[in-house]
Amino acid sequence: MVKHISIGGVVAAGCDPNMEYLITVSHSGRGVFSLDSFERVARDYSVIYPDDGTIEGIGPLDGVSVPVTEIDYNSGKLEFQSADSALSFVYESGTFSISRKRA
Rank of each mutant, 00 (worst) to 15 (best):
I23M: 10
R43S: 13
V64E: 15
F89L: 13
L22R: 02
I98E: 05
S75K: 02
H27K: 07
D72A: 10
G9V: 02
E39V: 01
E79F: 06
G94Q: 11
F38A: 03
S93C: 10
F96C: 09
G9D: 15
F80P: 06
F33Y: 15
T69Y: 04
L35K: 01
T69H: 10
K77H: 13
R43G: 00
S99N: 13
D62W: 03
P67C: 01
S82M: 05
D72P: 05
Q81F: 02
F38K: 07
S82F: 08
I58P: 01
E39Y: 02
P17E: 15
A103F: 04
V64W: 10
G31V: 03
L87Q: 08
I48E: 15
R30H: 12
I98G: 09
D84A: 07
G9F: 13
M1Q: 14
G31S: 12
F96L: 10
S88E: 15
R43E: 15
G9P: 03
Y21V: 08
V66A: 01
D16T: 07
G29I: 06
G14S: 00
R100P: 00
P50S: 12
G31L: 04
G29K: 05
V68E: 03
R30L: 14
E20K: 08
S75Q: 09
V47S: 00
S75D: 14
G59Y: 09
L35S: 04
G8H: 08
Y49I: 07
V32N: 07
S88I: 04
S75P: 10
T54L: 01
Y49D: 12
K101M: 06
V90D: 04
L87P: 08
P67D: 12
M19V: 08
K3S: 13
K3H: 15
G8V: 05
V32D: 05
E20G: 03
Q81P: 00
F96S: 11
S46M: 08
F89T: 06
L35P: 03
H27V: 10
D62P: 00
I5P: 10
R43L: 09
I98Y: 04
P60R: 05
S75T: 15
T95R: 05
I23C: 03
S85P: 01
N18G: 01
D52M: 04
I98K: 04
G59W: 12
E56N: 03
M19D: 15
T54V: 10
S46F: 08
D72T: 08
E79Q: 14
P17K: 12
I98W: 06
G8Y: 12
L35V: 06
P50D: 14
R40P: 04
V41G: 01
E79H: 04
G59K: 03
Y49Q: 08
I98S: 09
